[in-house]
């Protein structure tokens, strides 16, 4: 019996993938041994990130790690992937939303419609600005060319931010060549890990979302061809990857804010930032008006955040 070979491409570059996906794939390969091997490719390596989804549907790539937004999946849920503005406060919100509030079923259904298996959702870091110039007020954001997620960019553009989309691997160079003034893509852990902290000087502590939503996907046919035990093994390894990120980011964010030396922290006062939070309410309404599915998901986000608010400390402090 020959070894089953899969190709998986992540939307993360090599340095980041070292933490967020490689350990899980290495573990999978070690356990599966001769039965199955997954070859891991990094951002834009085999196909550009914008083509990831198509490539998976056709089977150029068997599996993908990405958020819905970055790879522009042709589904109703695209805008909620990556950073849905103010949708989550903490990274634990994501698995709760998916496993206890019903997002998992919606995602499974939406992706099955386009021939893709949604394996599982996981959380990454919060979304902060890393910039060359300090940001101390909303006015400082005006006219800044920033690399960010499509939906986050759509939301932020009302504050004068110019969202720019480039291949992930080109970001560091683009900051140096002047194509970008900053990045609103990650927390501080990632800024240090991938080298962005070397090309930007300031880190804004306000975030537009507390946790990224992203997933592992597979080509449906390929997934169905796998024996059940390998499917189970893959799910376990991917859960392990989600778990690794939970503590790696949670600890990393605090540690680098306190002990990091490459970036200076700045903040926009809470009263001023409240304008951005208020804008998110309107933005949610706009999204909900776009379709029934979207309205349903927005309602789940509303319900969840209201519940957390009522639960009080330690779930919400204000």
């Amino acid at each position: 019996q020959s070894t089953i070979k899969w190709r998986m491409q992540t939307y993360a570059g090599a340095a980041l993938a070292e933490h967020v996906v490689k350990p899980a794939i290495d573990t999978f390969n070690k356990i599966a041994g001769e039965r199955m091997q997954i070859e891991l490719f990094f951002a834009d390596q085999l196909v550009p990130t914008g083509e990831l989804f198509q490539a998976m549907q056709r089977g150029t790539i068997d599996a993908v790690q990405s958020d819905d937004d970055s790879m522009a999946s042709p589904t109703e849920v695209t805008v909620f992937g990556g950073y849905f503005p103010f949708g989550c406060r903490y990274s634990l919100d994501v698995p709760v939303l998916f496993n206890q509030y019903g997002l998992k079923e919606i995602w499974d259904g939406e992706y099955a419609k386009v021939g893709v298996k949604h394996i599982s959702a996981g959380a990454w870091d919060p979304c902060h600005f890393a910039t060359k110039d300090p940001i101390n007020s909303l006015a400082d954001l005006k006219g800044k060319r920033v690399f960010t997620f499509p939906t986050a960019g759509r939301f932020l553009s009302q504050f004068g931010v110019i969202p720019v989309t480039l291949p992930w691997e080109d970001i560091e160079v683009a900051v140096q060549t002047g194509e970008l003034d900053g990045i609103a893509w990650s927390g501080i852990t990632e800024d240090y890990t991938v080298g962005w902290a070397d090309v930007t000087d300031y880190f804004l502590t306000n975030n537009i979302s507390g946790a990224w939503i992203g997933h592992f996907f597979a080509n449906m046919e390929r997934w169905n061809e796998l024996p059940e035990d390998l499917q189970a093994l893959m799910m376990v390894c991917m859960e392990q990857s989600h778990y690794y990120r939970q503590w790696w980011y949670w600890g990393g964010e605090a540690n680098l804010r306190v002990n990091g030396t490459k970036m200076k922290l700045t903040s926009i006062p809470d009263a001023e930032w409240a304008q951005v939070e208020a804008a998110a309410v309107t933005f949610w309404d706009e999204i909900a008006a776009e379709s029934e599915t979207k309205a349903k998901i927005v309602e789940i986000f509303r319900q969840y955040n209201a519940d957390m608010q009522k639960a009080g400390r330690p779930y919400r402090y204000s």
Binding site: L46, R58, L166
Partner: peptide, 23 residues
Amino acid sequence: LWGERGGFDIAFSQSIKLMRWYP
């Protein structure tokens, strides 16, 4: 190597990569 599973697409998807290579 890849036959139906990507053999036909890999060449064209590079043109999108090329388009996004701004330099």
